[in-house]
Amino acid sequence: MYNLVMKDIKLGIHPMFFISPVLFGMLMLIPSWIYFLVPMYFFWITVPNLFGNFRSQNDMMFTTMLPVIKKDMVKARISVIVILELLHIGFAILFGLLNQLLYSNLNITYYFFAPTMGFWGLCMAMLAIFNIIFFPMYYKTAYKFGRAVAFATIAAMLFAGVVQWMGIQITSMFDIFNVTAADHRAFHAGILIAGIAIFAAFTLIAYRVALKRFLKVELL
């Protein structure tokens, strides 16, 4: 499993995609932006490029000839994507903290979610939704990624859109996230923990379903 992860990192994934979490994370420095867009760059840009590359390089056939089993192939690939997701979120959080440091005295008005702990929890839930749709759909064939990326992206964006809309329309929610966040630390921490739990649970379910489907795939 470890070797497969390293194979993807060294061979299958262009180093650019390990730099992009930093670059996309920097978008957090735009004051009062729609910060939900920042982690979305991951599935808009990174995912289709990665899976397109895996397909054009015949990665599946290449990997099958190595002394590995299908179970580890799925586990490793999902692990690699999770690593990238965590890098994206991790750097976004770092730049979010920098945002708060830099602009704390500027009295910025937030129209959308401010980069708070609770917001990062919502981002984790969004990625969870992406994973639970993308992996099971992709592993039906293990090469057709277009439809899987499209469906998973739409679902994740719908979730983000609805939550953001609620965050604007519901005054109490708006206040907790954007005005009195400092007074609701426990609430925010709760959302973050829930987001992480959902991410872990959804990704695990996605792995199980994906594996079940991949075991039936014929590698032609």
Binding site: M6, K7, K10, L11, G12, Q57, N58, D59, M61, F62
Partner: peptide, 13 residues
Amino acid sequence: FYTRSRIRTLTDA
């Protein structure tokens, strides 16, 4: 497979 990679990179993996 990985035709744009160097032999060394492929072998190492």
